[in-house]
Nucleic acid binder design. Structure first.
Lengths: 244, 244
DNA sequence: CGTTAGTTTGAAAGTCTTCAATTCTCGTGG
DNA sequence: CCACGAGAATTGAAGACTTTCAAACTAACG
């Protein structure tokens, strides 16, 4: 079975068996299981990169007034930012959601892998590019979508990303995010998020309970969210056509 | 006189005279003056990168419902995203604010410059890193700051960035952004932005008129905004200490 | 079976948006 | 040199919506 990083990058280009072995090795360094969901348990050491292999993690900021803003969800196959680690400290925190399994990869190991397998380096750069596009989509989400659409859009994105790595079983997927976390993601209060979710349930659009999300009416959800998956570059046709 | 790109990167590391010449050359390719502020006049060709040398530009998205979200302001020395250009189409538009002078640099020229001057490549990577940090700061701004703080924070950021490239004359700087654009940046209506600005004026915090911004009480503005310039890495101490 | 985190509900208060209409600014043409 | 027009800024008032504040309820866990 391929690890989630390989599964994710496969959406960008095919790999030789040598490359696949290298990717597999990346998922075997310093494996550790982290509890999140509590105190500040940010496990990061500068210079190292963390790859989520099971469960979810989140990156977030705490503002001066104590408010929290979630900046990104790290699904299996996602890595903590590499560049930031290279150029200095972190400007945000990271922690697991519930429990997550991550592996800790030294900068050197990563650089050697990229040196030995240029196509992997390109694929990782592509992944970083998608991450930046996602940040931009979140800005648009927070700034110019109605509360209901905001939540819907986030659900669409997470569903699609889980599907890309093969972690969505049809229209059902694991969804370990609490309503408070959703609120800290989409810039609303937990109360509002709760009422929006109830509305979505009443419309038979989704089922969300017990850490599981089921999308009953995908078409409707995507439409109301104004969701266009292009920014995830899940449509790899143009990417694969490059000479990589 | 150094061009704005050089001035910006100088905040990251010093350059040899050969490197400075290379940076100077980058600012001389395909110079053109663009009117913005009107119709969709996005001048970009895939594969080319655009460097702002005078005036401001903006990147933005148009949502399905017609709303506009501004994603970033490009000040002198800023470049349109390189990665996006490499990996496919654009997922956003770009246009000048008022009039701006940009130069059009082919991907090949840029890559050659980076190849011949590795430290320039690193400095550009650093700049991209700062841009990503800025996107994240905007997410926090939109999601978890009050309207008043949002506007204040944006003003702080732009003031600081103008100062970094030496385009702020003390507490006064050019500020070609309309209130409607501010509204499309911070996720508010023009009416609300207008009232916030009036409040800032009445408190003698800023003067904003005729395309000029003057910060009368910097301390107060930054405090109320919860502004911490660390994400701009303007404090180059840790960066310059690297072995670049 | 008690505890804790998470979800749900209600009602009041506050704030932003909406919708118009007015005023101001500045470049252009007469 | 002044009138005109377009874009930008400003103002007012009503309405809609989210937030706030509590409190009750549920579910999971030891």
């Amino acid at each position: 079975m391929l690890n989630p990083l390989t599964r994710k990058l496969l959406a960008f280009c095919d790999f030789t068996s040598a490359e696949r072995r290298a990717l597999a090795r990346l998922g075997e360094y310093g494996v550790q299981r982290l509890p999140g969901n509590g105190l500040g348990n940010d496990p990061r050491k500068p210079g190292d990169v963390y790859l989520v292999v099971d469960g979810w993690a989140q990156r977030y900021k705490i503002l001066p007034d104590g408010g929290r803003q979630i900046l990104a969800y790290l699904l299996p196959g996602d890595m903590s930012e590499r560049d930031t680690d290279v150029f200095g400290g972190f400007d945000h925190e990271m922690e697991a959601i519930g429990y997550a399994t991550v592996c800790q990869i030294s900068k050197q190991t990563l650089l050697e892998t990229e040196r030995d397998h240029p196509r992997i380096a390109i694929a990782l750069a592509w992944a970083a590019c998608v991450e930046r596009a996602t940040l931009q989509e979140w800005i648009a989400n927070l700034g110019r979508r109605s509360p209901e659409r905001r939540v819907a859009h986030l659900l669409c994105e997470l569903w699609r990303r889980m599907a890309i790595i093969g972690n969505a079983d049809g229209d059902v997927m694991s969804f370990p995010v609490s309503q408070v976390q959703l609120a800290d993601t989409v810039g609303l209060t937990p109360v509002t998020v709760n009422r929006i979710i109830q509305r979505l349930r009443q419309q038979n659009t989704i089922i969300l309970q017990n850490g599981k999300l089921q999308v009953l009416q995908a078409e409707q959800l995507c439409t109301m969210a104004g969701f266009d998956a292009a920014y995830l570059y899940a449509d790899n046709s143009h990417a694969k056509s490059h000479d990589f």
